[in-house]
Design a binder for these strands. Structure first.
Length: 512
RNA sequence: UCCUGAGUAGCUCAAUGGCAGAGCAUUCGGCUGUUAACCGAAGGGUUGUAGGUUCGAGUCCUACCUCAGGAGCCA
């Protein structure tokens, strides 16, 4: 076979008029008498081929006519622009080599028609090949990359905590337990937080990024037993700075996804305007605080209508104000004044902030107007319907801060203005997606932390090393954790987190 | 753990307690611009499992299994 340049389907527009070689799979096949329309996919996209009988060698026509779906092929053909094609291009097939033909007796089980959830999850290893699932995984990869990138370019050091842990962060009932040689037990981590508090006090600004495990018997569209979490932890950071860090973090991720994945989001069926609203500058703030042009262009590039993304200068406005040098090591007190650690103070994108009390008042009003069914009890945590209502009132993620200490984790710093409240924040994604980030300022006083551990009836011995952090140069510090799968579900507009990870682990499924 | 719902052809679903059905997929035939192509034909069933009620059960009852949606809990 004559050799031609090997191309990917995503790059075919650069090969118009050329004969190229594609390597991939037969995605679908339509026939109209002596005219075949095979659709090929290669992981980067799909393209329809045209095979008129008589225009190609007889064996090529016969091979393709009888080819089974998902058979692997190497195809040669000429790229031709065609207004009838969804992607704008078609392939005039000249030759085909079949690497492996799917046997007639065992056809590919995933069809273009509807399937049930159980069937699709049972065939997840094959379901991944469909365009929508592939698009979701590409967006997931960008979300993970841009999340890490935000911290990497802001002076954070990645310090991954252990996966195997000797004890729980917040109790052992929700942990996966395993034998650890002889008589010991080990548990799969449910959060690296306690460990990165230690590395934050060593390095200043740190983050961790890895899998976490929860043995909760939760059976909802928001829960996995194994999920990925990215957690920053910053010495000398207090609650206000933590809010700004999270705001810049989310803005950067959404901006990056919009820069690179408009086509994928369209395949997924996402309403892109909803994402543009998330990063749109607030009118009042933008008008009152003139910005360097580079920062403005970055936001308009993400927020405006489809501009030529390739010609847009690559600007990372949310990270420019802070140099990537490790300033926190040299001058850790930089952040002591409640200063934003990673975002410029002129950041035009402000997420709404509600105190727990304000959120409660909002729910009281909603209940009085009959907008929610059950009344929220002051002092209780918010339920799913509560979170859905609150987030539906805003087009941007909502930050709810200062929950009652009684319903929050033992390590959260009390608010000096009201010690019954904790200096914590939950960030709710819009459109009812609920909590994607939970964070707090941590208790830095030894005696207070010790009494909280005792009050929570946690084994003091297991936490001695954690208490040590308050014994040797303790400082205020804060951090948060974001569940990647919930962020992907929100950004892609999915109704279940099981589609956001290649192989979801849920209460009822650990296969394939 | 609790509440609710669903298990019938490879898939998605029908079927007053009375002959087990359709679309898609597969195979065969037709069609030179199809877009989940279309048209014709064929093959394809221990109705989740085990009991029970009944002349007769996919359908009603009991238990169990599996899955889904929700609650609680959380990211």
């Amino acid at each position: 076979m004559q050799t031609h340049p090997i191309a990917t389907i995503a790059s075919l527009s650069a090969h118009e008029g050329q004969t190229v070689t594609l390597r991939g799979w037969l995605y679908n096949l339509r026939a109209s008498g002596k005219l075949l329309f095979p659709i090929f996919r290669d992981g980067t996209g799909t393209i329809q081929g045209i095979v008129p009988k008589g225009a190609v060698p007889e064996e090529v026509f016969e091979t393709l006519k009888n080819l089974t779906l998902e058979s692997s092929v190497i195809v040669t053909g000429k790229v031709r622009a065609d207004s009838r094609a969804p992607s704008g291009f078609e392939l005039d097939v000249e030759g085909v080599e079949v690497l492996q033909r799917v046997p007639d007796e065992t056809p590919f089980p995933i069809t273009l028609k509807e399937h049930g959830v159980d069937f699709l999850m049972e065939h997840r290893h094959l379901w991944l090949r469909t365009p929508r699932q592939s698009a979701i995984l590409r967006v997931r990869a960008t979300i993970m990359r841009s999340a890490a990138e935000y911290f990497d370019t802001n002076g954070f050091i990645r310090t991954d905590p252990p996966i195997l842990t000797p004890n729980a962060c917040e109790g052992t009932s929700e942990l996966f337990e395993m034998d650890y040689f002889d008589d010991d037990k080990a548990y799969l981590t449910q959060s690296g937080q306690l460990y990165i508090e230690a590395t934050a006090l060593a390095l200043g600004k740190v983050y961790s990024f890895g899998p976490t495990f929860r043995a909760e018997k939760s059976k909802t569209r928001r829960h996995l037993t194994e999920f990925w979490m990215i957690e920053p932890e910053v010495a000398f950071l207090e609650l206000d700075g933590l809010l700004e860090l999270a705001e810049g973090f989310i803005t950067h991720i959404v901006t990056t996804v919009l820069e690179h994945h408009r086509a994928d989001l369209k395949v997924i069926g996402r309403d892109i305007a909803k994402l543009e609203a998330v990063i749109a500058p607030e009118q009042t703030t933008a008008a009152s605080a003139p910005l360097p042009s580079s920062q403005v262009s970055s936001f308009t590039a993400g927020g405006g209508p489809a501009v030529g993304a390739t010609t847009e200068p690559k600007v990372r406005s949310t990270t420019e104000a802070v140099s990537p040098t490790s300033e926190s090591l040299a001058e850790p007190t930089l952040l002591a004044q409640g200063e934003a650690p990673a975002t410029p103070s002129t950041l035009p994108n402000r997420f709404p902030r509600l105190s727990y009390e304000e959120a409660h008042t909002m729910l009281e009003d909603a209940f009085a107007k009959g907008l929610i069914e059950t009344r929220h009890k002051d002092g209780d945590d918010f339920g799913s319907p509560d979170e859905t209502y609150i987030s539906s009132q805003f087009s941007k993620p909502v930050m709810i801060h200062r929950y009652p200490s009684a319903i929050k984790a033992f390590y959260m710093q009390p608010d000096p203005l009201d010690p019954t409240k904790a200096l914590c924040v939950d960030i709710l994604a819009p459109e009812g997606y609920g909590e994607i980030i939970g964070g707090s300022q941590r208790i830095h006083d030894y005696d207070l932390l010790k009494s909280r551990i005792e009050h929570a009836e946690l084994p003091l011995a297991s936490f001695q090393w954690y208490l040590d952090l308050r014994k040797y140069g303790s400082v205020p510090h804060a951090g948060f954790g974001m569940g990647i799968e919930r962020a992907v579900a929100w950004i892609c507009g999915l109704d279940h987190v099981r589609e956001t990870i290649p192989f979801a682990r849920t209460l009822n499924r650990i296969y394939p």
